[in-house]
């Protein structure tokens, strides 16, 4: 178990570094915070005996993170103001976070609907959440940076992240219908 934990922490720390590699403003402080969260949540995850409770937790956590990011953006985190003159790397970071918050909030909403409202299997709900996060985090920033340059619009990016969650939701719904 300890070996598993070490691997997990290393894996996700590496992932964190990979995701934020373009964000040069990331400080050691935040790496330590991230590492601590990874460690704590890994330990917490091991002691969740009920899958349903784990889902409750992860929905709460993902949604909370999305709301935190959104709040941070709304409150005017440097770099999110329209008039800010951004380094291109910072620009990517800005877009990334806006789209991610849209994807996370959408993912939380639609995962909840899937599992608790439509009684889909648990793993489907997790897949919805994961894909929403993944697409809004990885693909959107690249698309927006290449297509729109500096002419970004907060709502546009946020809603696109949100719409991705909605699309995945409909795809899952349609797949269920197709597969019977």
């Amino acid at each position: 178990m300890i070996l598993f934990l070490i691997i997990l922490v290393l894996l996700f720390s590496g992932l964190s570094l990979f995701i934020e590699r373009k964000a040069k403003g990331k400080t050691i402080f935040w790496y330590i915070i991230t590492l601590s969260i990874i460690l704590i949540l890994s330990l917490v995850g091991l002691y969740f005996k009920s899958a349903e409770k784990a889902l409750y937790f992860i929905l709460f956590w993902f949604g909370g993170c999305g709301v935190l990011i959104l709040l941070g953006i709304i409150l005017g985190f440097p770099g999110y103001r329209k008039s800010d003159f951004l380094h291109p790397d910072e620009h990517i970071r800005k877009i990334l976070r806006i789209s991610m918050s849209g994807g996370l909030i959408g993912g939380t909403i639609f995962s909840t609907i899937l599992y608790f409202g439509l009684h889909f299997p648990l793993y489907i709900s997790i897949v919805e959440m994961f894909l929403s996060f993944f697409f809004s985090e990885v693909f959107l920033p690249v698309i927006f940076v290449k297509s729109s340059g500096d002419n970004y619009a907060f709502l546009k990016i946020f809603l696109t992240g949100f719409t991705i969650s909605l699309s995945i939701f409909f795809m899952i719904f349609a797949a269920k219908g197709l597969l019977g």
Binding site: F12, I33, G45, F48, A51, W61, G72, F77, E137
Partner: peptide, 28 residues
Amino acid sequence: SYFGGLLANAGCAGIVGAGSFLCSAAYG
């Protein structure tokens, strides 16, 4: 602005942590 930055960074740090939670929950 600082508070906003703090929240946004915390949210991002939390996301990475959520992945490790999922893995360890699955392992458990």
